[in-house]
Nucleic acid binder design. Sequence first.
DNA 1: CAACATGAATGACCGTCAGTCATAATTTTC
DNA 2: GAAAATTATGACTGACGGTCATTCATGTTG
Lengths: 223, 223
Amino acid sequence: MGITERKEREKEHRREEIIDAAQTIFFQKGLQLATMDEIAEAAELSKGTLYLYYKSKEDLYLAVLARGMDILYDMFSTVVAESEPIAKKIAHLLDAYLRYFKEQRNYFRMFFFFDNPQVHKQVSEEMLQACATHNMKVWNIVIGLIREGIEEGVIDHSIDPKQAAVILWASSSGLMRQMDREDHYWSDVMGVNLEEALRRANAMILASMMTEGAKTQFREAVV
Amino acid sequence: MGITERKEREKEHRREEIIDAAQTIFFQKGLQLATMDEIAEAAELSKGTLYLYYKSKEDLYLAVLARGMDILYDMFSTVVAESEPIAKKIAHLLDAYLRYFKEQRNYFRMFFFFDNPQVHKQVSEEMLQACATHNMKVWNIVIGLIREGIEEGVIDHSIDPKQAAVILWASSSGLMRQMDREDHYWSDVMGVNLEEALRRANAMILASMMTEGAKTQFREAVV
DNA sequence: CAACATGAATGACCGTCAGTCATAATTTTC
DNA sequence: GAAAATTATGACTGACGGTCATTCATGTTG
């Protein structure tokens, strides 16, 4: 009696196909300008069918966003698994986030679009929960790595790992957002390389967090 | 012949009244959920009239945003005008930004909503230009203050004032965005005070930029 | 195999809303 | 005070998110 299971698989497969289509359209046009008719067209389904699988356009958007979080999680996991000194791993984590920004720009943008408070009206509780979980997994990696750094004496023990994580993350995100918006403006008109600014900012923050002994190690590991 | 001038004033006055109404509605509901009918109702005008004064809903939104930029500019100007040592003024500028975030939250949110690339379809060129100009005025204050700090030997001469400005701004903005979204989550679940994190981040970045001699002065001026 | 049952898929339809435009009201000009 | 010019109106249009009565495909039963 594998019929219900086969049906289940097919249903899951269809859900994935719909996300594929939605992703294509959302990446092209963004949440506002994408229409459900377009997505249905791309998925080769009728609009009504989309609503059998997802509660709303925003719900679909979050489903795509969750994929983006998975990708970032995988990239971060790879860094954590490295057998490198912790200082290097922390630097690599920041590099990985920058690489994510550059290689997965569309997903990165979704992160920022997501927190628009107006969006959360018609999203399903499960989808919101799923996104929160994925988000938490990413945070835990960052926090865990910093905690490890403290334990190994690379980062000062007076530092709160959670606070350090949010500082590094938010600072990086802020600069990447600037890069995303107006990198050209800053490089062409202002003569400022924002990527270099990002690296500098991270270096400054990290330097302020590290123990005296580790600073020399860090310098040669990163800069 | 003051008739055309009176007319001009009246027209400008009406434009302001419309922004007042739009601001009320936008602050309540945000760009997406606010409707032009509501704004017209609040302005005690017909919807058609709104379109005589502003090209689109987004245009109106930008008009409100420009006000928010003016307020920030005024706050920053006050700091620049202080007769305090430059290190203190820089610290006060960062304080002023935090105060803006806390006291003018609605405007602050608009900053982040603004750079949604999907929004810029039907906005007038003038409005976009006006916002860019206002934005630039704010940047110039930040950059100018840091440049002054370099000239006075408080900030290291190897620092590029524009780069320093974008680092401080983006880092602060990133953390404030986090505060705006999920301050409660961070304080209640994670036990992290994001405002303290912001102050820490700024202190770390500033400390990395300052000359050795100025660091002691800064410590007593800010922390 | 035919009658029936299940649930997936459809697309016409609905309500809402940004934006338009023909018409009306008001003000200015002569 | 009539014609002209300017300003205001709100019914209307098209587009879009979301719904639902109906159709269709597949599996079950006798």
